[in-house]
Every structure is written in structure tokens, then in C-alpha cells.
Design a protein around this nucleic acid. Structure first.
Length: 606
DNA sequence: AGCACGCCGACT
DNA sequence: GTCGGCGTGCTC
């Protein structure tokens, strides 16, 4: 009898075997519906073989008339799953359009994709002004298939419109109905469409050679969204390019250190560009300044001048809420139970704990020294808005909150922000402004960002400051108020010179053994009680320490003490070493506890 | 992941 | 006396 091995979207790291009903033709790469745990579920057929295993349930029905993945693409999926310690089934689910009900049989087979020839071009990293225009020119010049991957559906929509001006373009992302996504996949496969745009679920879309794959904003953390596979789209794209003859273009205003290092090592081409127009960037030193006012005199003057010139102002604030501190002894008002600083809301005149949610009225005196002067520190959007309104009462001022920007009130807030003279917001507000749309962009206090307990803090700060500067007209200004005015991220933005950031940053990363020189993984252990969690974490730590190539740090408890995280460093073989070391905990006999592994984390979970 | 099975608290 | 909490375990 014929047996099909099917991988399901579940954290089980093996496939399930089914009998192929007589008369069916099934090949690996097709999805099929089959009974699993009492329900009919869709999985990927990863192998078809002859055998004699009595008692197997039969496949229920085929979902794809034609395979959606070729053998080579299934091999790529295996590689992704192994590298990210994800299951093959959930990797497939994340990297394919959702299965349609049923589809018409197509006639075209999958394009055969061979190994990369010796003449295959290196991946290219496009930086600098006009990088997106250069991508479009490339796609216009080539007659081959092209796929543009963006980090979010909004960007996909914009690119789909741009591509449609060149040739027929289809969308493979969740911004269009499921049937349309499936049809787009098939249109690429049979050549009826040559241009496509999508998010990570489009990364494996069929691209008959000669083809171009474009990854926009390769530095974006959104290219590694939550859920399997825990791998950045940049890594998927680079591996696909290594296995398939396609041209790979990466774009970034501020490349990831990973991409920059590859470029320096000659693995990626990074054409150098003449610097384009750039605003005047100044850094205002706020050290030793009594912070009762978020706007230093130079910033207040710049706002006044920009508004007088009828141009727009963007004030970048940190999402971190402000807290209350004693002017006399410096103590911060903390939650009695959780020990973290209570978030101060001026409007509500209350203090709220962001861990346990407890809300307290404002205290009259400092608990530490009984001083009577408790004042807020840190500049949240709300406090900055208040200060700006007080000084510029005639201006139209809008606040852009990431939380309020979603949902029903989102549209209203967006409209208000789009019409405002002064927008006060976090990183997400950047989307409101096109290139050179602003007269002034200013960072009220990026120090929280810079001091975040995350080795990517500098990279993030650079990305945000650079992105803001790109949105300011060449005759406009960027003002950065900081207690770290000498930081090389600011110097790089001020002189529009990326090297000024990457040179010292690479040195720092190399010295401390951070990516791109070593790989990181965060292993999370969870068990019922806190002592069980502790015991599990100790056992996991011991197992990891037994592995030669791994550097293992002691487990860190989270605030609730129900989760412990173990940070691990290793080399290129980190996934394999982790998999070997953790195998005993994955066995069914291992019992209690859940172990979770995040390889190459981009967001620091602490 | 789902979904079942399986033992301990507040209700008709 | 039941309904239901989610801890543990299995799914071809």
C-alpha cells in the first residue's frame, strides 16, 4: 500500500502516516486533509512511500490540486525548521497562503530549480536615498518574475500599486481574501503573473527563473513576527537564494548588523552611493539640566520657527511611561508588591503598576525621605503634549499612541494626526510622513531607548533617528536632546554617514560576543509551580552546559517567577547543539514542563 | 496546537 | 447531587 507522511501545524516534531486511498495520486508538496485527534486537519505531505502498516487511517482529501512546494522547497522548509527548532508542519503553515476550500486543477508543473550557477549574482544590499526607486527600476528592466516581501500589509498594498504600473501584479498577503492569495500563488507558478508582493507567508512563492526576490527594510524586527518559524525573513531569503538561481535585493535605510557584516565580508554587494540631501542635525546636551520642561530652548525655538514657516513638526517620544520621583532624595515611587516604578498618568492623576495593574492616588510625600516634592520624570507623549500646548496654543497638536491607533478610534486619530502641525508620537507615527514631508523632527529624550537592556539598543536608536531624518526636508532640521550626546548613533545621523555607526558597533558586538559574531538563543522553561520551574530550568541549564560549543548563562526568573529564561551563545551550529542538548526534555517521558527556544532573537524579552 | 480525559469547588 | 476549572497526554 501507499503511505503518505503528513506534517501538521502543531508543535510535534514528527509527521503522521496515512494510507493513500486507491487510485489517488499524491506527491510531496501537496497539502491534504486527514483525521488527527478526532478532527479533520490540513497538513503538508512531506513524503510518499510504499509500505505495510496496518491500521492507518486514510487521507480524507487533497487540498492542493498541484503541489504548492517543490522537492527543493520542501528541503528549504526542512532547513528552516531545523535552524529555528520549529516543526516542519508549522513552518509550512506560516510560509504558505491559507488552504482554499478546493481548487481547479492546473496544468503547469512546478518550475524546476537547480543549484546556483557560478555566475549567479551576489545578493545586493541597497541603502541610501532612492533605494526603493532603484528597486522599481530593476524590476522594470528585468522581464523575469519578481516577488517583493514587506514587513507589513500596509507596505505590501503600497508596493502592489507600484508594481501594477509595471506589469500585472498580484498580492500574496493577508490584505486580500484567501482565494485571491491562492490564485496569486498559482498565477506566479504558471507565469500568468510575473510580479507579486506579500509578507513572510509569500517567501516560498514559486518564482520561475530568471527571478528577483526583494526584501524591503531587511533591518525590520517585524520580519520575524511571533509564531513559527522563529526565523527572520532575511535569513530565509538568503538561504533560498543560495539554493535557487534568483537575484536577491535587500533594502534598508539602516541595515541590520548581520547584513552589514555580510557586506563587509564580501558575501553581499553593497553599492556605495553619494549622500543625498540631508537636514541639519544637531544634538542638544541635556546632562545636568533640571528637567522640568521637555523642550530645551533650541528645540522650542526650532518649533516656533517651523510653525511660522507653516511646516510640520514631529516630536518623537519614548513609549515608556513616565514615573514619579522625589526631588529631594531621588527615590522613584514604586509598586509595593512588584518593586517596579509606577507609571504616572497626569490626566488621571494616578499611579498605575504596569505589572499587577494596581492603581494608586498620587502620594503627598516621599515614602523614603518624607520630602514633599514629588515630580514626574521621563517624557511620555502625554506630558510632552501638555508642555507643547502650553507654549504653542495656536498650533494644531495631535498625539499618536500606538494603542489608540488601532481599532475604531484609529481612523479618527489618524485623520487628526494627518492634519496636525505638531505630531507627538512614538516610532509608529513615522508612517504618517512621506520622505522630506517634515520641517522639523526632534527626539525629546531618546535616552530610554539607548539605555534599554538590549544589545540592539544602539541599532534601534540609529534606525529610528535615521528614519526620522529621512522624513525631514533638506532645508529642515533634526534635533536630538540627549544625555548621551556623544553617542555614535547620533554622530552617524548628524553626518549622514552609516560607517560612523557600524564601525564602533561591530567592534562592540565582536568584543562582547554578540551577533553577527556569535549567535544567541533564549531557552524558556515553564512548569507548574515556581520550584518546579526552577528545577526544570536548572536541569535544562545543566544539559546545555554539557554541550561544548555553547556558552550558557544562569537562568533568570521573570517577575511572576513562573518562567525562567536561559540565554545561550554559540556559533553557526547553535541550532543543532541546542536540539541535541534539549532532546531529552522533548521526549514524552520527560514529563512536566514546557521548553521553548527562540533562536536569533530580535526583541529582547526582559 | 486542539481536544480529550480526569480529578476538586460553587451552583440548580 | 451536577457543571466546570485547566493540568496532563495523545494524535497516524
Amino acid at each position: 500500500m501507499t503511505i503518505a507522511d503528513v506534517a501538521f501545524d502543531a508543535p510535534v516534531h514528527h509527521s503522521f502516516s496515512y494510507r493513500v486511498p486507491d487510485g489517488w495520486t499524491v506527491v510531496p508538496g501537496q497539502r491534504a486533509q486527514a483525521p488527527l485527534g478526532g478532527a479533520a486537519r490540513v497538513g503538508m505531505v512531506v513524503a510518499v512511500r510504499d509500505g505495510a502498516e496496518p491500521g492507518l487511517k486514510p487521507l480524507a482529501q487533497l487540498v492542493d490540486a498541484e503541489p504548492v512546494l517543490s522537492r527543493a522547497q520542501l528541503d528549504l522548509v526542512d532547513w528552516i525548521a531545523a535552524q529555528s527548532l520549529s516543526s516542519v508542519g508549522s513552518t509550512c503553515a506560516a510560509l504558505l497562503p491559507p488552504p482554499a476550500g478546493r481548487e481547479a486543477a492546473g496544468s503547469a508543473g512546478l518550475a524546476a530549480s537547480g543549484a546556483v550557477g557560478p555566475g549567479a549574482p551576489k545578493p545586493e544590499l541597497l541603502t541610501g536615498a532612492g533605494r526603493e526607486k532603484r528597486v522599481l527600476e530593476r524590476l522594470e528592466a528585468t522581464k523575469g518574475a519578481a516577488l517583493v516581501i514587506a514587513a507589513d500589509v500596509e507596505t505590501v498594498a503600497r508596493w502592489a500599486q507600484r508594481l501594477a504600473k509595471i506589469d500585472r501584479a498580484v498580492r500574496l498577503d493577508s490584505g486580500v481574501p484567501d482565494e485571491e492569495r491562492g490564485a496569486a500563488w498559482r498565477a506566479l507558478r504558471d507565469g500568468s503573473a510575473r510580479l507579486a508582493a506579500g509578507t513572510r507567508s509569500a517567501l516560498l512563492a514559486p518564482l520561475p527563473p530568471p527571478a528577483t526576490l526583494v526584501l524591503l527594510d531587511e533591518h525590520e524586527a517585524a520580519h520575524k513576527p511571533p509564531g513559527a518559524p522563529r526565523m527572520h525573513s532575511r535569513d530565509v531569503a538568503l538561504e533560498r537564494r543560495a539554493r535557487e538561481p534568483l537575484a536577491l535585493l535587500l533594502t534598508a535605510a539602516t541595515p541590520s548588523l548581520e547584513a552589514w557584516w555580510r557586506a563587509e565580508s564580501g558575501l553581499i554587494d553593497m553599492p556605495s552611493r553619494e549622500p543625498g540631501p540631508w537636514p541639519a542635525v544637531s544634538v542638544a546636551d541635556t546632562r545636568g539640566i533640571l528637567r522640568r520642561e521637555p523642550l530645551t530652548p533650541p528645540l522650542a525655538r526650532a518649533i516656533r520657527e517651523t510653525l511660522a514657516a507653516k511646516r510640520r513638526v514631529f516630536l518623537v517620544v519614548s513609549r515608556l511611561t513616565s514615573s514619579l520621583a522625589c526631588d529631594e532624595c531621588g527615590a522613584v515611587v514604586r509598586c509595593g508588591d512588584c518593586a517596579i516604578a509606577l507609571a504616572y498618568s497626569r490626566a488621571a492623576a494616578r499611579l498605575v503598576c504596569r505589572v499587577c495593574g494596581a492603581s494608586h492616588p498620587l502620594p503627598d510625600t516621599c515614602a523614603a525621605c518624607h520630602g514633599r516634592r514629588l515630580t514626574p520624570f521621563g517624557w511620555g507623549a502625554e506630558r510632552v503634549e501638555h508642555a507643547v500646548r502650553r507654549r504653542f496654543s495656536d498650533a494644531r497638536i495631535a498625539r499618536w499612541d500606538p494603542d489608540a491607533a488601532r481599532g475604531a478610534r484609529g481612523e479618527a486619530q489618524r485623520a487628526a494626526a494627518a492634519a496636525a502641525d505638531v505630531v507627538i508620537g512614538t516610532r509608529g507615527a513615522l508612517r504618517l510622513f512621506g520622505p522630506a514631508a517634515l520641517g522639523l523632527a526632534a527626539f525629546v529624550a531618546p535616552d530610554q531607548l539607548l539605555r534599554a537592556p538590549d544589545f540592539r539598543a544602539g541599532e534601534r536608536t540609529l534606525a529610528l533617528a535615521w528614519a526620522a531624518a529621512e522624513r525631514v526636508a533638506a532645508d529642515g532640521a533634526v534635533i536630538i536632546q540627549s544625555q548621551n550626546p556623544g553617542h555614535y548613533a547620533f554622530a552617524a545621523v548628524a553626518r549622514q554617514n552609516l560607517h560612523e555607526f557600524y564601525r564602533p558597533e561591530l567592534k562592540f558586538r565582536a568584543e562582547l560576543g554578540y551577533p553577527p559574531f556569535r549567535r544567541l538563543a533564549v531557552v524558556t522553561a515553564r512548569a507548574g509551580q515556581s520550584d518546579e520551574t526552577r528545577r526544570l530550568a536548572e536541569a535544562v541549564g545543566a544539559a546545555l552546559r554539557g554541550s561544548k560549543g555553547l556558552t550558557v548563562y544562569p537562568p533568570i526568573a521573570d517577575r511572576s517567577d513562573r518562567i525562567r529564561r536561559i540565554v545561550t551563545k554559540g556559533g553557526d551550529d547553535l541550532p543543532r547543539l541546542l536540539d541535541d542538548a534539549l532532546r531529552e526534555f522533548k521526549a514524552p517521558s520527560a514529563g512536566r514542563g514546557i521548553i521553548d527556544v527562540e533562536v536569533d532573537p530580535v526583541e529582547w524579552p526582559f
